[in-house]
Amino acid sequence: MECRKFEITLIFTIDLENLHRLCKMKVYARISLGNDPNTEKGTPIDQHSKTNPVWDYSMSYVIEESMVQHHGTMVVINLYCKRKLRDRYIGKGNVKSQGALKFSFRFRDKFYIDKLLLAESIRAWSHSAD
């Protein structure tokens, strides 16, 4: 099976709406490929920057070449504010009405991998991401 390594670095966001009036916002992001929960990975929580969180945090995936060629494949970046009782959803990177999100990504060279090995690798990486 033809695959590529996909690397994404979430750098920062600016001008998020302040959801905590009395204390600092603690923002983190959850990234998935095409809303597939099996591919979800997260950034650390930014403890210092309030409405302008900075992560400069990289994640990588092994994806099938067909996902690169298919224009409907989407990277979903959901932002959350850490809270004591339940984290609050802030918004998606691709539809947020206030603020800006900066990230970078790249695709590495193609390589071939056995389907069974790919499935085992994805399962192992998704469990180690948390």
Rank of each mutant, 00 (worst) to 15 (best):
N35R: 12
Y28W: 03
V62P: 00
S60L: 10
Y61R: 01
Y80H: 08
G93W: 00
L19N: 05
W55R: 01
E65H: 04
I90Y: 09
F12Q: 13
W55D: 01
N38I: 09
I45V: 10
S126F: 14
N78L: 08
H48E: 14
K82P: 06
E65M: 11
L22N: 14
E2D: 09
E17T: 09
S128Q: 13
M25I: 07
V76I: 01
C3V: 05
L22M: 11
N38A: 15
T43Y: 01
S126G: 08
L19S: 04
S128M: 12
I90V: 01
D109C: 13
H48L: 12
L117E: 15
Y61K: 04
E2W: 04
S121M: 15
L79M: 03
K102G: 13
R106T: 08
K50D: 15
I77M: 01
T51V: 02
L19E: 00
M1A: 15
M59F: 04
G34A: 00
S97D: 14
E65N: 10
Y57G: 04
K115A: 15
M1V: 12
K84N: 13
R106F: 01
R21K: 13
R106H: 00
R21Q: 15
H70D: 10
T13A: 07
P53A: 01
A29P: 03
Y80A: 02
L118H: 14
H70M: 13
P37H: 04
K5R: 12
I14K: 15
V54E: 01
N78F: 10
K92V: 09
R108N: 11
T43L: 08
L116Q: 15
D87S: 03
H70P: 02
I113E: 14
F105E: 05
P44Y: 15
L33K: 04
N94E: 10
V54F: 04
A129W: 00
K26G: 05
S104G: 12
N38H: 13
M67H: 08
V27N: 06
L85V: 01
Q47N: 12
W125S: 15
E7W: 08
R123K: 06
A119P: 10
K96G: 12
T13M: 10
T9A: 02
I31M: 09
V68P: 03
S66E: 14
H71P: 07
I31C: 03
P44L: 10
I77H: 03
K26F: 06
V54I: 00
P53R: 02
V76A: 05
L117Y: 14
R88P: 07
G72H: 14
H127Y: 11
K26C: 04
E65V: 08
V54T: 00
D15W: 07
A29I: 04
S32A: 02
A29E: 03
R123N: 11
K50C: 15
T9M: 02
N94K: 15
W55C: 03
I63P: 01
L118V: 13
T43F: 00
S66K: 09
Q47K: 13
L16N: 04
N52P: 00
N35C: 14
R30A: 05
W55L: 07
A124P: 08
S66D: 11
P53G: 04
L101R: 02
I11S: 03
S58L: 11
E7I: 11
S126D: 12
G91H: 09
A119Q: 08
T51A: 03
L16G: 04
R123P: 11
A119K: 11
A29L: 00
I11H: 05
T73N: 09
T39H: 08
F12A: 07
W55F: 02
